[in-house]
Simulated assay, not measured.
Amino acid sequence: MFIILIRLLVFALIIFLIYSGFKYLFNPKRKLELAKEQKQFYFLDDKEDVRKNFMVTYKGVLFEGEKYLGTTSQSFEVVSIFVWAKSSSALQGLTLKDFYYIEEEIKQRYPYADVDWKSPIKELLDKKRSQGEKWS
């Protein structure tokens, strides 16, 4: 009787370890960190929860975006997004094309949204726009 109980506990422990391993492997935040380390693009977002910010990693830089719900001509949609870098010092080496690429990826997911950048990216983009330079 005691041996059967121990076997059941060992079996339950093995099932728990396998479940925990799968949960860890398929965790989106782990994928975000992995993409950041490999300097790849990754977009982590819960489209169903407007109040939850999204995270983007691109070329090893982590960006966070805050979504705001508003009205369009036919429905309620995300109409405004503010994006900022989690670490300003990590922005070194990024160009206007990189910010344009990130903005386009956000626009694909939220077509009705106006994307606004926070400092210091906003100053760079405003400076280039006031000089009449294009994104390319």
Rank of each mutant, 00 (worst) to 15 (best):
G60Q: 07
V50Q: 01
S89K: 13
R51F: 11
E103W: 03
I121L: 08
L96K: 13
E64S: 11
V78I: 15
L44W: 10
I121S: 12
D46V: 08
F99L: 07
T95C: 02
T95E: 15
E66V: 10
V56I: 15
F54E: 11
Y58R: 04
E105K: 12
Q92A: 13
E77P: 02
L69W: 03
K122C: 03
S89P: 01
K59T: 01
M55F: 13
E48C: 00
Y58E: 05
S87N: 15
V50T: 14
V83F: 02
W84S: 13
E66I: 10
L96N: 12
K97Q: 14
F54Q: 08
E66H: 13
L96E: 11
L69P: 10
P120Q: 03
E64I: 07
E105V: 00
W84Q: 10
F54V: 04
E104F: 01
D49Q: 12
W84C: 03
S87P: 02
I102R: 11
L91C: 05
S89A: 12
K118C: 02
Y110K: 05
L62N: 04
L94W: 10
P120E: 03
Q74S: 13
T72G: 08
E105Y: 00
V50G: 00
L62E: 10
K86T: 05
V61A: 06
M55A: 07
E105D: 01
V50C: 01
M55V: 02
V50D: 03
G70I: 11
K118F: 05
R109V: 06
I106P: 06
I81R: 04
Y101H: 04
L62Q: 06
S73V: 09
W117G: 05
K52S: 15
Y112L: 05
F43W: 02
A113K: 04
Q92P: 00
L96D: 11
T95N: 11
R109D: 11
K118H: 04
I121V: 14
D45R: 03
F82Y: 15
D116Q: 13
D46L: 04
L91T: 00
D45Y: 02
G93W: 14
K59V: 00
F54N: 07
I106F: 08
S88K: 13
G65W: 07
G60K: 08
L96Q: 13
S80E: 15
A90P: 00
Y110T: 13
E48W: 03
F99T: 09
F54I: 05
M55I: 02
R51P: 00
V78Y: 13
S80C: 06
K97T: 04
